[in-house]
Design a binder for these strands. Structure first.
Lengths: 154, 154
DNA sequence: AAAATAAATTTGATTATCAAAGTGAAATAT
DNA sequence: ATATTTCACTTTGATAATCAAATTTATTTT
């Protein structure tokens, strides 16, 4: 994938040039859905991304303004990755990516609470998702998670 | 991109493994937004896809059940590509891809009618978009286009 | 002081992508 | 009827991305 080009000004092409690869959206998913924040946590993803590709994708997403990197205050080896405003704005997109995969895949594997959440109004779920992340939680985890607010996974 | 793998059952990963590349969503865009149907029309896209990559992506999307290929009845050289039900179901995803690109890109280039449409209720626009394609039109073109139904581009 | 942990980087092989040229069948023009 | 054009690809050879595995450097824990 010859990245960094500017093949056209089409907004769809813009998004695809930033996120159209195998790993970028999975990293964003790990942040938005599971609250992952460190290199080591991303390395442990279900899909087994390698460290060289991970480092490359994180640098790419940082340069494109999707996420930011700050040193941990408690452990100076660690870097903390967090989403920018543009990264948070990916919630509706990620919701539709997950939704299409859920209805199209012959055997989608996700927590039951995801499939339960899909039965609710999508605008509501997407708003709760943003509020969860802004409060330091994520879709599935934390006291302000979508799962907690909707009373799923009880 | 080592395609055809099954790295996990995650619905997001499922979608990304099918559509996570530079060209697949642009082909779907050309079909849904502009009503393109033939190899030659896709070749003329703004982003200048080459014939070898186009042939590969079309075969990929056909094998994944996003589109179908039938010989033209009027010209036996031509193949007509059309979207399947799964392909039509990409409308909400493509809408969000375009929406994120529109608010994130520093200089998005699209017809004014797209930006006008974004001001309307997204569920309405997505429903009109599907109806347009089902009626043989597309987002921008044809008597049943979204643009026509919303009275944009007058 | 030694061992473990964290965030990457390096290496060398495999795979995808690219632009440019070429192919064969069917339609159109002469 | 013949020549030319159109159309949907395929082939080719170079460039670029991706991969798993091993290594490096700095920090933290034992």
């Amino acid at each position: 994938m010859k990245r960094e080009e500017n093949k056209s000004g089409c907004p769809i092409n813009y998004t695809v040039e930033i996120l159209g690869d195998t790993w970028s959206l999975l990293i964003v998913r790990d942040m938005l859905a599971l609250g992952k924040k460190t290199f080591g946590e991303f390395l442990e993803s279900e899909e087994r991304i390698g460290p060289s590709v991970l480092a490359d994708r994180l640098a790419h997403l940082e340069r494109k303004g999707i996420l930011a990197k700050t040193p941990s205050e408690t452990d100076r080896r660690k870097m903390i990755y967090s989403l920018t405003e543009s990264g948070l704005n990916l919630i509706p997109l990620l919701y539709e990516v997950s939704s299409w995969g859920s209805i199209t895949s012959p055997n989608p594997a996700a927590p039951d609470s995801w499939f339960e959440a899909m039965k609710h109004d999508k605008v509501l779920v997407q708003r709760l998702w943003r509020e969860a992340v802004e409060a330091g939680s994520s879709f599935f985890l934390g006291p302000d998670s979508v799962v907690a607010k909707l009373g799923l996974d009880v």
